[in-house]
């Protein structure tokens, strides 16, 4: 895993639930089918009310119409990101859309577990709520070793919280990889 992720940020508010990340009506597609699973990228974050999609301006689609991938690589959000249902389709949809990291002030636990055990992307927690300081479209860079987020557009810098005990699973790339390394399966 590279220690730097760089890309355009897509900014969301607090309590982004899994119905907003991937609305229930799309859960019928097969994630294990290459063609069909593109729909998860297509509809990622399509449940977010328009006014709150891409803050602070809002009304910014996360995925362009007819597209299956997003221009935004990093999601910046407030507290309780991923609350609601246990659908692993949610982190999967973000991954299919091309998201590599989420930076939020806190996560709902099932989503957090799913992101880590499924190895979909890296969930960082920010020390302060940076969703009110970063604008959608800003180019940001996350340094895994220093646990810092740099906003290249405004030249500001923010601290992230180290991953703690789950770092081993994140580094392995997911629960199964971790279990294999540790000879559990």
């Amino acid at each position: 895993m590279s220690s730097i992720i760089k890309g355009k940020a897509f900014v969301l508010g607090d309590d982004i639930d899994t119905d907003q990340i991937i609305p229930a009506e799309y859960l019928v597609y097969r994630p294990d089918d290459a063609e069909e699973s593109k729909n998860y990228g297509r509809y990622a974050l399509s449940g977010v009310p328009s006014a709150k999609s891409g803050l602070p301006a809002g009304n910014i689609p996360f995925v362009a119409e007819d597209g299956c991938e997003s221009d935004y690589r990093i999601i910046v959000a407030g507290k309780n990101f991923g609350c609601g249902s246990s659908r692993e389709h949610a982190p999967f949809a973000l991954q299919k859309a091309g998201v590599q990291a989420v930076v939020a002030t806190s996560y709902a636990r099932i989503f957090y577990r799913n992101v880590i055990d499924g190895g979909f992307l890296t969930p960082f927690e920010s020390k302060m709520d940076i969703s009110i300081r970063i604008k959608t479209g800003d180019v940001v860079e996350i340094d895994f070793n220093q646990f810092k987020l740099f906003n290249r557009t405004t030249q500001e810098e923010y601290s992230l919280i180290p991953l703690g005990e789950v770092a081993a699973i994140v580094q392995a790339g997911g629960l199964f990889e971790y279990a294999r390394i540790n000879k559990m399966v």
């Binding site: 982190p91 099932i110 577990r113 055990d117 499924g118 279990a179």
Partner: peptide, 23 residues
């Protein structure tokens, strides 16, 4: 996620994702 319902019977019951369930 509403697997928590069964906790009413005095058991530890919680929701997980597909990877955990496959494990």
């Amino acid at each position: 996620s509403h697997t928590s319902t069964a906790g009413a019977f005095g058991e530890f019951a919680t929701g997980i994702g597909n990877t955990d369930a496959a494990f």
